[in-house]
């Protein structure tokens, strides 16, 4: 498979994930749970799933919130 075809396959997979895990008919209230207005798919006792893009966005937004909180800090102490 050449690079272009592989890239195209990735794009289609992202579109699939975005739909099959995040859209479509939802029958049970307890199949999805919502954290900070973000729907997560509940598939089992310990499995939480969301679309790749959504997860990436959540991660980024969390990082920005953390950075915004730290920005005015003058001592910049690190946290482990």
């Amino acid at each position: 498979m050449n690079e272009s075809a592989a890239r195209e396959k990735e794009i289609v997979l992202v579109d699939l994930l975005d739909r099959i895990l995040y859209k479509g008919v939802i029958l049970w209230g307890d199949i999805t749970i919502s954290v900070a207005d973000v729907d997560l798919i509940y598939l089992g006792l310990k499995v939480l799933l969301t679309s790749v893009e959504k997860a990436e966005e959540m991660r980024r937004q969390t990082a920005v919130k953390v950075l915004n909180c730290l920005a005015p800090s003058s001592n910049g102490g690190s946290r482990s």
Binding site: L13, L16, L17, R19, I20, L21, Y22, K23, G24, V25, I26, L27, W28, I31, I41, L43, V47, L49
Partner: peptide, 30 residues
Amino acid sequence: SPVETNLWQHEGVLEALMTDRTILPVRFGT
């Protein structure tokens, strides 16, 4: 299991159904 092959399997069923009827896709894992 929400692995890629299963996701495509679910989607494959939907796409086959789409060829001769109207469908409402149900979210994976129901």
